[in-house]
Amino acid sequence: MALLEVDNLTVTFKTAAGPFVALDGISYRVDHREVLAIVGESGSGKSVAMLAIMGLLPSSATVRADRVLFEGHDMLAMTPRQRRQIIGKDIAMIFQEPMASLNPCFTVGYQIEEVLRYHMGMGRRARRTRAIELLDEVHIADPASRSRSFPHQMSGGQCQRAMIAMAIACRPKLLIADEPTTALDVTIQKQILELLLQLQAEEGMGMIIITHDMGVVAETADRVVVQYKGRKMEEASVLNLFESPRSPYTRGLLAALPENATGDRLPVVGDFVAADGVAPA
């Protein structure tokens, strides 16, 4: 049984200009201990898909799918209360803007402890100790005093580490990282990716990593889904994808990698659905 199995997921937003189809029948599958990368340009529905799985889309969204199974349990059929027992615990998520994703009014320690309190029922003292351990696990220096810091007192990289500490607090089976490094400096990006991979290997988590960056895909993923305008263009193992990309869109993405660029201009990825009439994979 797969860890996560999403079949034919469709998300439609009610907007002032009429219904907007953000996801058009997309399917994903993540196995235990597997790292799936989802790539695709801005607006291709990567975040919407993850939020739909977590049940976090606003009420203006209509989510339909043949099934969204996590460890065999149908996430869409669950009551909100049942879903809340899974998200934050067995499925955890980290976001693109680490600074904005932490609540400015509470200390980092408090925000980590919250997860321990609600999902593990841990007592005050045990929570505090565990929160500091977790900060240590994500390599934050001086974790005890950092746990008393507010987000604005930390750097973006440290905030993302704290978010990761929060996400792994209950030893999740699936970690969803939505562009976890996009907002960070290049050197910090590398450190955060290394941390995620190290934790993924140690904990044996399944992981979905969303990125624009083919370089990140190459370094982290086992399998890749290439997404475009709410549809899946291609799905392949990382090796196959880089060696023999099937869809022209993917070829475009790969050509856009800096090391493949010819001359001093980067190639641009065009509108492939319209231009080539490529059917989604």
Partner: peptide, 26 residues
């Protein structure tokens, strides 16, 4: 609409905590 409210929801916290603590405090 802030990111940290989405984070609070993603943590699986009950709505009264998301709204009454995380959102209201700000």
């Amino acid at each position: 609409g802030e990111d940290y409210v989405r984070t609070a929801r993603a943590k699986g916290l009950p709505p009264r905590r998301v709204i009454g603590i995380h959102a209201l405090r700000n």
